[in-house]
Amino acid sequence: MSGAVRVLVADDQNLFRESLALLINSGEDLTVVAEATTGEDAFAQTVAQRPDVVLMDIRMPGGDGIEATRRISAEPGLAGTRVLVLSMFELDEYVYSALRAGASGFLLKDARPAELLDAVRRTHAGDSLFAPSILTRLVEHYLDRPTPGPPCTA
């Protein structure tokens, strides 16, 4: 597994987190290096293990996933670590907060297993991934913004 993508799974629900770990470890090119149950633990485990990708839940006790993402993104020693948010909630507030915090993408927990594995791989490769419904709203939000006027030449 020397070339495997190293993944940290952060989710407070034991069954879901351990199921994600089993799924990720089923990929020959993926390996789970740590699991976390709180936002604080996700940050600490990320510092200790330096995973390539953190699969981050938003709503967790002990510091939520948004704050953990913000801390990971701000830590200079973790510049190579990318965060992929995985949530049940597709609220715009969560999506925008996750992006502002430095998340590379946002998937919903109803994603199919193959989609999740692909998202981890693509996040590691530098792509930004979003659930289709979220991507549609992001594009609509961008298109609804006023068009900037001509550049100021003063």
Rank of each mutant, 00 (worst) to 15 (best):
R82Q: 15
A98K: 06
P132K: 06
A98Y: 05
I134V: 15
V85M: 10
R100F: 01
E67R: 07
S73E: 03
D64C: 01
D57P: 10
R71D: 04
T46C: 12
P150N: 01
S19H: 06
V83D: 14
A101D: 03
T123L: 06
S133I: 02
G27H: 08
M88F: 13
L20S: 08
G126A: 02
A125R: 07
S26Y: 04
V85Q: 07
L138V: 11
V33W: 09
C152P: 00
L22H: 05
V83G: 14
G62Y: 06
P146V: 03
I134T: 13
A44Q: 14
R100M: 06
N25C: 00
R50S: 14
L99F: 08
E18I: 10
P76S: 07
A21H: 01
L129N: 03
P51F: 03
F43C: 09
D110M: 04
V120F: 07
D64A: 01
L86E: 05
T46K: 05
A36T: 05
L84S: 15
G126F: 02
P151M: 02
Q45Y: 01
A98C: 10
Y96N: 07
D110Q: 13
E115H: 08
L30E: 00
Y142C: 10
S19V: 09
A10E: 01
R59H: 14
G126M: 07
A4R: 08
P76I: 00
E35F: 00
R121I: 02
E67F: 01
M88V: 15
D29T: 09
V9Q: 15
I72N: 08
H141F: 09
L15N: 09
F106S: 15
A34Q: 02
V54C: 12
D118E: 15
V47F: 04
S26P: 00
P51N: 11
D92T: 04
E75S: 14
L99V: 15
P51R: 05
C152I: 09
P148E: 01
D64F: 04
I134N: 03
L55N: 12
G63T: 03
A154M: 00
M1R: 09
P146C: 00
G80N: 09
E93Q: 12
P61K: 10
T69K: 11
L23E: 08
R112V: 12
T46D: 10
V5I: 14
L23W: 05
T31P: 00
A79M: 10
S87E: 13
P132C: 00
G105L: 13
V54G: 11
V33M: 10
G105N: 12
A4P: 06
V83E: 11
R71H: 08
D110W: 04
L129I: 11
